[in-house]
Computed example of a mutant assay.
Amino acid sequence: MLHPMELELSFHILSLMVQRDLLHLPRGHYCQPNGIILNWTRRKFVLITNHNPLTTILGQKQKVPSIAAARLQRWALLLFAYKYLKITVPEEVSSAEGRKVNLTQLTALPVTSKELARETKKDLLLSKVFRYTMQGWPPTVGSDLLPFFRKRVEISIEDGCLLWGIRAIIPSSLQDQLLDELHVSHIGIVKMKALARQYMWWPKIDAAIEQQARSCQACQVTGKLPPWVTPRSWNWPSKPFQRIHVDFTGPFMGHMFLLIIDAYLKWLEVYRMSSTTTERTIDVF
């Protein structure tokens, strides 16, 4: 069964396909967004899923309930313009397809699945996560396991490796190596994060990527500079006290002071303040 977030992504991708008009797509094109497989020829395509609730939403001959969410109604309206064949596959077939996706993700990493599995078993933290994933999680865990505990329903094991969704969970011994791989082309923080989110995860990975990029001199030199803004000065006042500048300073000798400077005469007035509240500041003026 698809996770709600995966179902959301699948429908989003499907909506984009419909909006682009399937007439312009090549005949027999395939797509597999998280368990939904599409094979269309012009305005006809095949939809394969193991998610039974989808049969109500995507059924061609079934009406969408009037109390259904507006989002579901929009999806149904988009699909009404197309003819498709809906096929429900057994759970074991879907599991095999999911395993192919997981193995594909693992082979895309710069380390082998055997190396990843070996280091996962050696890691003190991930070895606990591995055991809890296999045997069941306790009701409460320590702070070090809390990031994994919050994702426990999305963590799986494939070929001895831990995965969060389709992203491999990287043990601490391999994190520096994979950070170097992400940073080898000096693509910047944003692109490094986007690439990592396709293949790997560990707690505080975003902070590690930011630190890696900011500590690189080449990235700082070649990075995009902020847009140039022409300096603009204040217009010179035409008479005294036409414009004043006000600010607080302190504490000094146990007191706060209100400074008032006239922009024309540079006249300075200082008031010792027992309180910096709005009411007390108004009283000074």
Rank of each mutant, 00 (worst) to 15 (best):
Y132E: 06
T222V: 05
I170L: 06
I67L: 09
L58E: 01
L25A: 08
E97W: 15
F149K: 09
E8N: 13
E97Q: 14
F252R: 04
R74Y: 07
G250S: 08
L103N: 10
N235L: 13
L182T: 02
V46A: 09
V184C: 12
L23N: 12
A168Q: 04
V111R: 04
V141W: 02
G160H: 00
A69Q: 08
V270E: 06
I209C: 14
A194E: 14
R20A: 15
P147K: 04
F148T: 00
G160C: 01
I48F: 04
D123N: 08
G142V: 04
L174F: 07
L265N: 12
E269F: 09
S172D: 10
I157V: 15
L58P: 01
D144R: 12
Q32W: 13
R152G: 01
W228N: 07
V93R: 06
V229E: 11
W236F: 14
T133P: 05
T41Y: 08
Q73I: 13
V129K: 00
W137E: 06
Q220L: 15
D159K: 04
Y132R: 03
P90N: 03
T107E: 15
S127M: 05
S143K: 12
A208F: 02
Q135K: 11
Q177G: 06
E279T: 14
A108T: 10
